[in-house]
Computed example of a mutant assay.
Amino acid sequence: MSSWYEEVSVKTEPILKQIKEHVFIKELMAGTLPKEVFNFYINQDTIYLAEYKKVLAQIGIKCSDDNDIQFFLDSATGIINVENALHQHFLKEEITTDEASITCELYISYLSRMAHTKPLEEGLAAVLPCFTIYKQVGDYILENQSNKENNPYQDWIDTYGGEEFANSVQSAIDITNKFAASASPETIDKMNEAFEKASKLEWMFWDSAYIKEAWKI
């Protein structure tokens, strides 16, 4: 019998495929992505993660199992310790902004709403694509790139293609599957909807970075 995550992954495979085929990912893998585009992305990702870690902490608070609570609180702390260091590495001499792009604002607002106002199962499904898609993109790049020695973005690539991140992703999947196993059909539908919407927002985040999305007014 397949798990909830396996089933929803099949349904959302076209979204993942489009992410892998996006010009941002292709140029990142080739090492030809313009520096100003990557810097825009890292800057927006810093803004996103500042809120995402709060969302993960809220998800942890809503859990009842001590191990589940600890995982999400550790994940929130891990963002502070690991992600921020990576961003400082790439942005240490760059001019940055504290203003979220349109897509970044949409994504963090959506996740915050799911974590604070919806049942735990839906919140878990909404935060999961940020784990799984980054793992899949990292693996995809590592498997297909031929320039690991001279890619200026290799540190970023290695972060999401490493074993430590893989273990964290699997834990997030296992916890979500556990809740899905006892969920009603109606809840499963809501979980599927949340996972699909967050996956689409992941694509939109890459796309908004590539065009250096700006507010129109």
Score class of each variant (00 low, 15 high):
N43S: 10
T46I: 08
K53L: 13
S64M: 13
Y48D: 01
A76S: 12
D68K: 14
Y41R: 00
A30P: 12
D45S: 02
G78C: 03
A30N: 12
H22I: 07
D68W: 13
K26T: 10
K53N: 09
P34R: 10
A76I: 05
M29V: 11
E36C: 11
N43Q: 09
L73A: 11
I80N: 14
K26D: 10
F38Q: 00
Q70H: 12
I79V: 08
Q58P: 01
F72T: 03
A57V: 05
D66S: 15
D65T: 07
E36H: 12
V82C: 15
G31W: 13
N84G: 08
H22T: 09
I69E: 03
V23W: 02
A76M: 07
M29T: 14
K35C: 06
F24Q: 05
T32W: 09
F24G: 06
L56A: 06
Y48R: 02
L33N: 07
Q70R: 13
A76D: 04
K35L: 09
Y48A: 01
D68P: 06
A50N: 07
K53Q: 13
K53G: 00
I69K: 15
L73R: 06
C63I: 04
F38R: 00
I25R: 02
C63Y: 08
E83W: 03
E27K: 10
I59T: 01
E51F: 13
K53M: 12
K62F: 05
L28A: 03
V55E: 13
V23C: 04
D68R: 10
P34D: 10
Q58F: 15
C63F: 10
D65F: 11
Q70S: 12
N81D: 11
Y52N: 07
V82T: 15
L28D: 02
I61L: 13
T46F: 09
E83T: 00
S64F: 15
I79F: 08
I59R: 02
Q44W: 10
V37Q: 08
Y48L: 03
S64L: 14
H22M: 06
P34M: 07
Q58I: 13
C63A: 11
G60P: 02
I59C: 01
F24T: 06
I42E: 05
I61G: 09
A85Q: 14
L73F: 12
F71C: 04
K35H: 05
D74S: 07
D66L: 15
G31T: 12
A85T: 08
V37C: 05
L33S: 06
V55H: 09
I61E: 10
N43T: 11
F24V: 06
Y52G: 01
Y48C: 02
V23K: 11
L73H: 09
T46D: 06
P34T: 06
K54Y: 05
F40Q: 02
K62S: 05
N81G: 07
Y48T: 01
E27M: 07
